[in-house]
């Protein structure tokens, strides 16, 4: 029931962002969101993977902050590499492992890895990620995992359980 309410609220927020704040629009949007929630909620298993306690929400806010900082850092890094006359890269594809179990958590982790400095997820296979790294500094799985994955994993582990 609680998850169904979350589904309804997120549909309604997207509708309000699209249509603007207006009384008639909000009434119609609420009716249609309620119908969609009743029809599709049993199929939408994506919301059953969130933990909805205060600690998880707090960690989610911290995660957004960490993610924004990493995004800015990665952009400065890419800009430096592009402008430099002799493009200083040392690329390779490395393999890392994750401890996350939930599917949504793994998806968000892969997307976060793509947007952080010098890494790009190429393929995921169960708990193995294959990552194109623009500047390979460690040769084995453990070192690469420590450098790439662990800074997000400790937050996502709390959020998605």
């Amino acid at each position: 029931m609680k998850k169904g309410f979350l589904f309804f609220i997120s549909l309604l927020i997207v509708w309000i962002l699209l249509a603007g704040i207006d009384q008639q629009e909000i009434i119609i949007g609420a009716i249609v969101s309620l119908l969609l929630t009743i029809i599709f909620f049993s199929k939408a298993t994506i919301f059953s993977e969130f933990n909805l306690n205060p600690k998880a929400i707090f960690y989610f806010l911290i995660y957004i902050f960490v993610f924004s900082w990493e995004l800015i850092k990665s952009n400065l890094d890419v800009a430096f590499r592009v402008i430099h006359p002799t493009i200083p890269i040392n690329p390779g594809i490395v393999k890392v492992k994750t401890k996350l179990k939930s599917r949504l958590g793994r998806t968000i982790l892969a997307n976060s890895i793509t947007l952080t400095p010098g890494t790009l997820t190429v393929e995921t296979n169960g708990e193995d990620y294959y990552i194109h790294w623009i500047d390979v500094t460690s040769d084995d799985i453990e070192g690469a995992t420590k450098q790439i994955v662990s800074k997000f994993e400790k937050y996502l582990e709390v959020i998605f359980g």
Partner: peptide, 30 residues
């Protein structure tokens, strides 16, 4: 400027994967 650098990275980098790195990150924040 970030969008421009992303496009410059797409032009200058030596292979597909490095081009993708520049193209994705810089154009997202840009």
């Amino acid at each position: 400027i970030l969008l421009f650098l992303g496009a410059l990275g797409i032009l200058r980098m030596p292979d597909v994967y490095n081009r993708m790195q520049a193209g994705t990150k810089a154009t997202t924040l840009g």
